[in-house]
Amino acid sequence: MISSLKFKVIIMKKDENKLTSSLFIVPYLIMFVVFLIFPLAYGAYISMHEWSLIGGKGEFVGLANYMEILFSDGTSSNIFMNGLINTLIFVVLSVPALVVLALILALLLNSLPKRIQPFFRTVYFIPYSISVSIIAVIWLWMLDTNSGLVNQFLGNFGIGPIPWLTDTNYAWFSLVLATLWWTVGFNMIILINALNEVSEELYEAGSIDGASPWQKFVHITMPSIRPIMLFVVVTTTIASFNVYGQPYLMTRGGPGTSTEVLLMGIVRQAFELRDVGVASAMAVIMTLIIICISALQFKFLRNKEGV
């Protein structure tokens, strides 16, 4: 009798408990639904309609927008394919540079005397705190063909003037250079942390076996930091895939549309051609590509690791 009464009280208390506990998560859930889940669903919905920026919703067209982008030879297909190829070029050029230089900087910082490490770390990392439009403006000025510091400096040696931003090949170099200057510090910080986690005992054991610094790096350091390297490669790839500000401001996608990246193409499709339906379909395809590439990288790099 008493025990069943006790049981009832506990149940009632539990319900009330659940209610007040739920209040903790309600504010976040509202934001989560309104600004993430709903836009996700809405984006998919828009992508299956004719939808103009001005006129609003038109007919339901199913997957026609996707077909147009992937299999037709029209404007939107050209914008998408050109953007995708240029984005891939940027990814292929920037990711190795961003990972390798970050590793070099991290190794360099770690072998400096302890007292001066924080100074150099801060200097290398400061550009990361500056926003993309300022980065772009600074580099526009640095790389200005006539009065930029770089060409003025090279001019002293009789080189140039080099068209850093108006020739396609140099333009890619400039975009990667500005990106490298801006974000390599971020990867460097992650890798410094990874290097500090490698156990000292392994290095000592290596020294006893007479391993050279290079052997230690290949056989001890690299295997130990591989999981973090994986993280760095994947996040850098995703970030490079989402590149927008640098080409938008530094080359304006030019010369012609030779450096117009995918995100710029989507924005053009939506806001210049005012075709939100097709632009949304482009965004969905781009999302799927990004998710696939990061999944593949995880799989590939994991397998190599033998996990």
């Binding site: 809405y42 984006g43 828009i46 965004a283 781009m286 999302t287 998710i291």
Partner: peptide, 11 residues
């Protein structure tokens, strides 16, 4: 995992 590109137009 969801990149932000997919939400910015609907938003």
């Amino acid at each position: 995992m969801v990149p932000w590109v997919i939400t910015f137009l609907p938003m």
